[in-house]
Design a protein around this nucleic acid. Structure first.
Lengths: 249, 249
DNA sequence: CTAAATAGCGTAGCATCTACGCAGTGTCGC
DNA sequence: GCGACACTGCGTAGATGCTACGCTATTTAG
């Protein structure tokens, strides 16, 4: 095997690690470990994932895990690739704009099943099989736009950044809301108390208009915000495509 | 004082906590603590900020800090507001688009001085004095667009999300790059080895085109990507403004 | 059957956050 | 001036976390 040059975590995600031939049979698989870690993170939180808890859930001792995983960080990286299922196949013959909307909605629902996903720090370009599948799906939608390859990659990376950023913020806010709903409900009155209109005139205008006083249903609001921001970004992409290649799609 | 209704962290950020009248003089200020924590985070990392290290740097014991701060999380929230200096005043009479570009560049340079900022989880709407100043600045730029207040807030929140997401991802990637530059330099060849063109056709096309083989200077690339995505978003905002209020700006 | 390679795991070290309660100190009311 | 009281700082200790190291048991190649 010539996978010496592959980074360790990439090799692990593609299950390319050399299988040894001698020695006792492993009572533990990488898949077991990753699966248990994902279950814990789904049920509680990414912070609840500790090597001890994962091992406990598998009936093994903590240190046994380190035969299969080099460090906890590596486990997190592998988890985050495994948790994303493959994207649904793109409907045939869609234009790039509906395609990317479809794609972004797919990302949103996929991550909704594993809210901790947005908290794993991104350490590099998408290198695992599942992340790469999503990347490929978005890139494929742009095939007929006439953009040069590099620009396609740029557009998709920007989209990933937007979607992840939006999701992360939405989930953080939702967690804050769950912790302390009052802080949100009373945000308007908090601002009225604390924000001097002479120092914060624009905020004061919005406060006066009552923008911060109605707190709608959280989930639905987020869905709407997500689409709103997404369409703004896609408007920008459309303008970009027109600018770059005048022949259009 | 009638600040009973204010959330504890908000009261702390605005320095509205009741000053006691009896008892020994505090040898420690909230400002001291926050300042020391920021210094540690600037010099090393957000992960390096522990109550013990902060106390050490101040020549106090760990537990002394808990007289001024309810928990470490509260300290993080207060830190993240204190670290953002006030925005530069907006140039007089700019149109909204150059204004928001100016604003976004300001955020970028402000956070560049405190890279850990992007790692603090957002727990609610911007409630500290500095964060609120930035919020006000962006909101003020949209004054003459004719958008309803709620839409302005939506646009600014979307912009914050985009900017923070972009910055966070850029910094995460930069950290990953610093850890392991090879993974980036060889990303093209990694993909060639691991990504079957039949499964990942669009990725394969980009790989073939050599998109992943040239790794430019990191800082400059990021600056360009940031502006690129920002302009896309602003194009979207422009379209939105036209759609909502036809009379224009 | 022997020897090598490999799996699991016990121990221990180190760092983290923080609950609890005690001792000392400075101020207010009289 | 003087006592009572409120408040500060801090020591201890527990809970939890990651992981280096090395021992023992197990399995298979030869």
């Amino acid at each position: 095997m010539e996978n010496d040059e592959l980074p360790a975590d990439v090799a692990a995600m593609w299950r390319l690690r050399e299988t040894p031939r001698r020695g006792p049979k492993p009572s533990l698989t990488l898949d077991d470990i990753v699966g248990a870690a994902i279950e814990i993170a789904d049920a509680e939180d990414l912070a609840a994932v500790s090597m001890a808890r994962v091992a406990d859930r598998l009936g093994n001792s903590t240190m046994a895990l380190y035969r299969h995983v080099k460090s906890k960080d590596e486990l997190l990286v592998i988890m985050s690739d495994a948790a994303l299922e493959r994207p649904d196949p793109m409907p045939e013959g869609v234009d790039w704009r509906t395609g990317l909307t479809f794609w972004a909605d797919g990302v949103l629902t996929a991550i909704r099943r594993h809210r901790w996903y947005a908290k794993v720090p991104i350490s590099g370009p998408p290198a695992g099989p599942n992340n790469l599948a999503w990347f490929d799906s978005a890139l494929g939608v742009l095939k007929d736009t006439g953009l040069p390859e590099e620009a396609k990659v740029g557009v998709v990376m920007g989209l990933i950044t937007y979607v992840q950023g939006e999701i992360r913020m939405a989930f953080d806010l939702a967690a804050g809301y769950a912790d302390n709903p009052d802080a949100f409900q009373r945000f308007g009155s908090t601002l009225r108390r604390v924000a001097d209109p002479r120092v914060y005139p624009a905020v004061a205008r919005s406060v006066e208009a009552g923008v911060f006083d109605e707190v709608g249903s959280f989930e639905e609001d987020n869905e709407a915000d997500f689409d709103f921001g997404l369409q703004l970004y896609l408007d920008g992409v459309a303008a970009f495509i027109d600018r770059v290649c005048v022949k259009g799609e």
